[in-house]
Design a protein around this nucleic acid. Structure first.
Length: 537
RNA sequence: GCCGCGUUGGUCAAGGGGUUAAGACGCCUCCCUUUCACGGAGGAAUCACGGGUUCGAAUCCCGUACGUGGUACCA
């Protein structure tokens, strides 16, 4: 106790010192999705690492919607993202739905802000207007294309051959601008500069500015591109740490430069580029889900209906609907690319917050393994009390037309079978027979064993069972075993037959436990029914 | 092509100069159970390759190969 509190004290002091030395304000992280479709594995892991880091430091978790591409906007996607976060147990502190001091949190609603910064960059000579049409850009790419350079860039080498405010006269530019000619604003990448920064995962990363193209900052429709928008918003929203997928690493130099030009490197958040999650063959995609039979989205996502191809109007399955518990989903994602150095694998969200550290995140991408994912779910089903997921299982039963009348009894049944369920959906097969009599039997197991002595035994068992006043595990088992002994029959064999009679197949918990649970009347009914059916084998 | 990032069993991974190279999933065998699981005991399987540095390299350095991301008025 004493040791703990002193440890806490020193940790606290250390923390304060670090904050003082770095002149650090509050930890603020953001998850910035585009509302273009389902939220997949990688996305959820990115949120998770953001969330864990923020919560561990007592910081804020912000969700910002990056909807700057109006052509890719999908109705309902934003709400879906929030639903997924809620299901996963990660409530944002600030977001378009939750509000906050830096609203609006939707980039489309901050359009004018970005424009000012873009103009500022032009004024300072760090950016320029470009008037090239789509055709002109295509021509450029076609003309400069060589086997050695299959995808020419709009960069320092060719910008002087294009139609922009660097090549046109001031008057021409002014004229085009007043005429409202379609144009974009591009960053002017410096000719020779090594741009480097420290990534919390990859350590030192550096780029040669001459190899990076003049990225568009402000599009012709006045919307910013991601590059401008992240930097501006991260600054305005006082983001302290920016964790994102590794697919952004290549464009990091653009963002670093923008920070330098606009706000100063000292205000820049600390970066961490998270390795990508892979599918069985390469990058994890929606297709992998269909191909290998596992979900890639957090929750079901109805693919956008397409008039030209009705096949695309299908459902992308989610972990929730597949039968995963959010606890398991979060757990498996957290340890896919991170571990705390101990042998622990099962973590609650609170334990994750406690143990998480960004510097123990792997540098390499990890392949998603569905078998292991299922194992996590199985462990969580065993670990959590049945009451935790009872409603979901109840809904499952009711969707299959089995009405649950008694919740206490239902709870007991689930308790009996929980350790043999991997997915929540398994509860149906594992427990249906507690509610309805088997419709068919495992014939192969019965055929070789069934004869007159067996049918005599079960006929007499019915009589004995009918006499039991107190229907409980002991009386059921005792009667059964006594009768078997009297008849000089093999108990094990008869037990197996009783199991098939009650369940339909060789599965489930102890036979007498099942008999007790379904009750005397139902047990007797099922034996009677089997006596008729088995006579045909 | 160019640039970035990466590479420990099939998968997730610990280990970061001297280890019999942890552990988990999956697979196999056995025990438990005349069921299916759970549980328990075992087993097979690994440092991408080639050069250095070193008494000693999975570990440090350099190449190569492979993978992956970027190379859009997408994010």
């Amino acid at each position: 106790m004493k040791k703990n509190s002193s440890r806490f004290f020193y940790a606290f002091i250390l923390n304060r010192c670090v904050m003082y030395l770095c002149n650090m304000s509050k930890v603020r992280v953001r998850f910035a999705p585009s509302p273009t479709g389902g939220l997949h594995l990688g996305g959820v892991r990115t949120v998770l690492y953001n969330y864990l880091y923020a919560k561990k430091q007592g910081g804020d978790f912000i969700v910002r919607i990056e909807d700057t591409d109006q052509t890719r906007f999908v109705e309902g996607a934003e709400q879906y993202i929030f639903d997924c976060l809620k299901w996963c147990g990660m409530e944002p502190d600030e977001s378009p739905l939750h509000g906050g001091p830096y609203a609006p949190y939707r980039q489309s609603e901050r359009k004018e802000t970005y424009k000012q910064y873009a103009e500022q960059l032009i004024k300072d000579g760090f950016a320029y207007y470009a008037f090239d049409t789509t055709e002109e850009l295509e021509n450029m790419r076609a003309n400069f294309k060589t086997p050695e350079n299959p995808s020419p860039q709009y960069d320092g080498k060719i910008r002087m051959q294009m139609k922009n405010s660097l090549t046109l006269s001031t008057d021409e530019v002014k004229k085009l601008l007043t005429e409202n000619a379609r144009h974009v604003i591009r960053i002017k990448m410096p000719a020779q500069e090594i741009i480097s920064f420290t990534d919390m995962i990859h350590q030192e990363v550096s780029f040669d500015s001459s190899l990076v193209d003049d990225k568009v900052l402000l599009k012709a429709d006045g919307m910013p591109t991601y590059h401008l928008a992240v930097v501006v918003d991260d600054y305005l929203m006082k983001i302290s740490h920016a964790f994102r997928g590794e697919e952004w690493l290549s464009s990091a130099p653009v963002h670093i430069l923008l920070w330098k030009y606009l706000f100063g490197l000292e205000h820049m958040p600390q970066w961490a580029h998270l390795p990508l999650i892979m599918g069985p063959s390469g990058k994890l995609s929606k297709r992998d889900g269909a191909k290998y039979g596992f979900p890639v989205f957090a929750m079901n996502w109805p693919q956008a209906p397409s008039a030209s191809d009705p096949k695309t109007n299908e459902l992308a399955e989610g972990f929730k609907e597949k039968g995963f518990l959010p606890e398991a989903f979060i757990n498996l994602l957290a340890v896919l690319g991170w571990n705390d150095g101990t042998e622990q694998e099962l973590y609650s969200i609170e334990e994750l917050i406690e143990s998480f550290s960004i510097d123990r995140v792997h540098t390499a991408g990890a392949k998603f393994d569905f078998e292991k994912a299922k194992w996590f779910n199985q462990e969580w089903i065993k670990k959590l009390p049945v009451s935790h997921y009872q409603q979901r299982v109840k809904d499952l039963f009711e969707s299959k037309s089995i009405l649950i009348k008694n919740d206490t009894h239902f709870n007991k049944v689930l308790e009996l079978v929980k350790e043999r369920c991997v997915l929540l959906t398994d509860f149906y097969d594992q427990a249906v027979f507690f509610f309805i009599a088997p419709l068919q039997y495992d014939e192969a197991s019965v055929k070789s064993k069934w004869d007159n002595t067996k049918s005599d035994f079960f006929s007499e068992l019915i009589a004995r069972y009918n006499l039991i006043a107190d229907w409980n595990l002991i009386s059921i088992e005792t009667e059964f075993k006594n009768l078997a002994t009297e008849k000089n029959s093999k108990i094990g064999e008869l037990q197996m037959l009783l199991r098939v009679i009650l369940v339909g197949s060789k599965m489930g918990p102890g036979v007498f436990v099942i008999a007790e649970a379904i009750g005397k009347t139902e047990t007797v009914n099922r034996i009677e029914k089997a006596l008729v059916n088995f006579s045909m084998f």
